[in-house]
Amino acid sequence: SHLLLTEPAPLEANQDESTDDGSLRTVLTLCDLLNRELLLLIGWAKQIPGFSSLSLVDQMSLLQSGWMEALLVGVAWRSQGSAGEELVFADNLRLDAAQCRAAGLAELYEALRHLAAKYQAMELSPEEVVTLKAMALANSDAEPVDCPDSVQRFQDWLHEALQDYESSRREQHRAGRLLMSLPLLRQAAGRAVQAFLRLHRHRSVPLHKLLLEMLDAKA
């Protein structure tokens, strides 16, 4: 319930108007949204019980390593069952396969639709979504870690919360099934990072400073 309360309200996209190139405009709109989501995510992480008591170095490591996964949980969740198989980055930013391809995000599209279909088949509850998001951050396999014991305790606490929730619903196998969806999330996040770095480096798409700093940390 703490994680549900901490979850920020979804953002709206601000349509870019700096260019006539439609696919570039899509990318710029998306990058602006991601940058603002990233800012919110950092504030959100600080409210997860246990996160702020980690050392600053570990807080930075977990965020640098897990931010994209944590953001994509929300995208996959919102994209479930969307008409036309779109990716719902925001209520007013829905991209279909052709738009993603034109924007250089074809691989990301495939991975995220796969994840959205998986979430849909599992009928995730809001409680499960927020817990998966926190686990994506805690389980990001950040390296190096300053205090492995504290990070482990943080992970254990989230795992316990998930197990308590599932046993209250008498769903014996659910926690395990949710954890088994994490590799697909990591794969999607890897593709997203590569796609945005490629857009920046090869197509000279300008990125906001925070977004670029976080992408560089994963490069």
Binding site: G43, L56, L63, Q64, K209, L210, E213, M214, A217
Partner: peptide, 15 residues
């Protein structure tokens, strides 16, 4: 750490 100065600053802010 210098390379990650925005994240560093955001985490140090108390809000």
């Amino acid at each position: 750490k210098e390379k990650h100065k925005i994240l560093h600053r955001l985490l140090q802010n108390s809000t």
